[in-house]
Amino acid sequence: MADSYYKPEDLKKFGKIGELGADHLAKKFFSYYGEVFKEGALSEREKSLIALAVSHAVHCPYCIDAYTVDSLEKGADEDMIAEAIHVASAIKGGATLVHGVQAMNKVKEISM
């Protein structure tokens, strides 16, 4: 095994993941993936910024690398990138905090 799980140059191998096996599934995945990011009801830039926010939420360094560059290429600037990441941060934080209502409910349930 390599001395690190994450290497920047591995990102470039992603397109060849079908070489591992199940090539037909990889092909389907990439055809779907390509379709998802095409301009539609959402612009390419909106999609790229959503991808960047999700990349942060799922802690994927490959995706952060790819979608920071892609966001810039699609015409986003630092403020847009920062705001997208704050959206991910707010939802991650909010998702933790909102579970507080379960604790709140439980406390009420077992308290006199």
């Binding site: 301009e39 612009s43 390419e44 830039r45 560059v69 810039l72 290429e73 699609k74 015409g75």
Partner: peptide, 10 residues
């Protein structure tokens, strides 16, 4: 910077 331009139309 070190990146390519996106779509001219958009």
């Amino acid at each position: 910077g070190a990146f390519l331009p996106g779509s001219q139309a958009s």
